[in-house]
Design a protein around this nucleic acid. Structure first.
Lengths: 241, 241, 241, 241
DNA sequence: GATGAATGAGCTTTCATTCAT
DNA sequence: AATGAATGAAAGCTCATTCAT
């Protein structure tokens, strides 16, 4: 039974101000959340013990059970909070002023920064993806929500930039996110900033190409056949017209 | 002391008996390897206990220590074997006859198949990447070797297809692998085959574009400045020339 | 410090408010008592956690410490209340009007009903007997008091019924109570009402026999030697005269 | 997975002699069983920790899990072993030579001894009855088996003694066992040997009466109506004919 | 080479209790 | 009187590893 579940068994006066004790409780909760995020991301969920988290947070073990009900509950909370930060990062990357091309460049730079400055975010999400898919329905649901929201945010961002929202845009956004994931994954192993620059360079070129071609298509009118019907890539060696 | 380290100090009391023992030993080893691969991939290294592996393999726990010296040693062996299979998969995708464009399409289809038919391979590698980077030098070394070889194989394959080997090709290959990883990761969560089709469709278009543009550049001569200097992507909305 | 120990040091700021508080306090206390009785009886004292009791009672854990000082104190209170009910049950069984034989039959029917309708009572007393004898002096004292009073009540009842109070009557009463306990114990396992009927049938016959023979003896005069001296049961096969 | 469940995963030469290691294993198992029996009986199952048992047995905690799989498994094993001893005790009490009346007296003396010399047996069974009815199906099954066998043994014993087996005999045996249980329960609280003597004295008189009357009835022929139909106990005060 | 047993550190979780508000 | 939070000991159990046979 964690605080959110604990019903108000008694009708209360409901004084708005929180007492000192409750305030301290919230602080404990927060410290646990922060430590857990860091450590789950660094070592994975299974390899991190509750004692590890608590030592780092300066809180006794039983507090985890007071605030989150179980290790699993702590994870869910961590994911939930992380999700927001993650998506906010993506959104902040895309939603800025400027001309379309600049904005896209800035958005990609933003993603790149995310990879370098907040690796915990991505590590955590990815390791959950690998470690705990299928086992726990709730974890899975949280992850799905996170990624769906991220994709939607990116799709909206691009649509706003180019002024249209062609049908294939969602897929392009999904591919971009997937590539971001993959690049991040590789960066975990190599930690080579120059390589990171090069990869994001190529990624940008690919994105621009895919988005441009969607845009062109949308301009010419979506009436000519199934979407993507005319988008068979040209032969290699032939310059694209 | 695992078998490979142990000298041939065994007294041979008749090769018939010995070979029977050795044969059974190899069978146990193999079963362990197979079970471990599956389970490490499914649940991650930390979350899989030696007992889990042994139960599945029908072998007693101490056998792991005879064959692999430790849980860590079992992991190393698993990674080593998995690596080969993984790279062979990539290679087989690329190295086939036919005209360039067809070969690329086939290569991408091959990767897609890898994602669906051998998820254990990728899961294992990726989860190792996330779970055990930084902790264990040997695991890291094995992973680096695997990914380097995969990238080299893909670079070679593309180079052979297009007949030239421009400087940026390695990066493109790396991006392709990264995207593959990312797509796989997403597929773990969604398991939506139609989405997989769409993603690979966009990936193909992106690859063709990147490779073509490298090819064109190589044709025009690689002499004009730093690689990629003239490759600033055009404005969105302007059709690429 | 539990309420009974606490002096009347409370400042009375208006009896209306106070009595409301007290009323609510009593309600909480009562709910705790009821839940604890049920759960201690069902699962035993050790296997029941304070949280179990509180969840069921809809009261926070610290309330237990306010009302009863400790888990042990809660138990003592529960036993005390239960004792009264238990003894009242026995008394009600015996103390009724009618001719002797009828009254005994009714008394036995009353006991039988007790077994079926108020199992918590007996379970609780018995499990305390087994779980906590030797450990805790207070629990032991409470239990002794309960059983002594029950035996006295039964002895009195029978004495009143048969009009005399021969020396062995206390022992017969004790045996009856012991048999009741034993039958109840078996019923916990089997829950077979027909078997319960049969057992109580035999018990009634045994009681009638023992009481009759005490009565006869008392009639013939209690002067001939030690009590029970002439009461050696006859040979099996010989009909009792 | 406890030893009995662990299948022979490999075909073995099946040499009959047990190795030193296995022998020591059996000794450990036995010590655990003995300590557990004592402690579960003394304090109850829930109140006894695995550490308590292991400390007393001089064995490490994990050994419990090797031999019995869980605390519950240890309990089941304890009950199983205890059962045999219990029943053997009952049987030994009844099955002896001599004339019927003597044998019955000896049997009752045997039960009385059981109460005094092996209280652990009865305590354990009874506390399981109270503590764990309904929760665990296996425990319940074991208990049922134990009590059924005990009743059957007693029924057989009496039948052999009196030479006939009238229909109500099973019930009488059940009542005797229940009374034994109840007397034991009371003795846990009072520990008064004189009282014990008196109670067993009355019990013997009751048994003789019930058995005799069954015997008589069987002699007269079981044809006259439902069993027990004519056995309404006489009025108190009237001497039984 | 395989097996059954042992080992002890460490895991997640529960619990009775305390305390400030 | 009641509440939410904290506390630390201890519980049941798992695990990687070792070892004699």
């Amino acid at each position: 039974m964690c605080p959110s579940d604990r019903g108000k068994s008694t009708v209360r006066g409901g004084s708005g101000r929180i007492s000192k004790r409750v305030a301290q409780g919230l602080r404990s909760r927060d410290r646990l959340l922060r430590s857990a995020t860091r450590q789950f991301a660094e070592r994975g969920f299974s390899a991190t013990s509750i004692e590890d988290v608590c030592r780092d947070a300066g809180v006794v073990k039983s507090a985890v059970y007071w605030h989150f009900d179980s290790k699993e509950g702590l994870l869910t909370a961590v994911l939930e909070e992380t999700a927001t930060a993650w998506i906010d990062g993506i959104l902040a990357s895309v939603q800025q002023t400027g001309d379309p091309r600049e904005r896209l460049t800035r958005a990609i730079a933003g993603m790149r920064e995310l990879v370098e400055t907040r690796p915990a975010l991505l590590r955590l999400l990815q390791s959950m993806l690998l470690e705990r898919t299928g086992e726990n329905a709730e974890t899975r649901a949280v992850l799905l929500r996170v990624f769906d929201r991220a994709r939607a945010a990116l799709t909206d961002g691009i649509a706003e930039v180019i002024g249209v929202r062609p049908p294939g845009l969602e897929t392009v956004a999904a591919l971009v996110l997937a590539s971001l994931d993959g690049i991040f994954l590789q960066h975990q192993l190599r930690r080579d900033r120059a390589e990171l620059d090069r990869l994001f360079g190529e990624l940008e070129r690919a994105i621009v190409h895919l988005v441009s071609s969607l845009f062109d298509e949308a301009q010419r009118g979506p009436a000519d056949g199934a979407p993507g019907a005319d988008r068979t890539p040209p032969e290699i060696g032939e310059t694209e017209k």
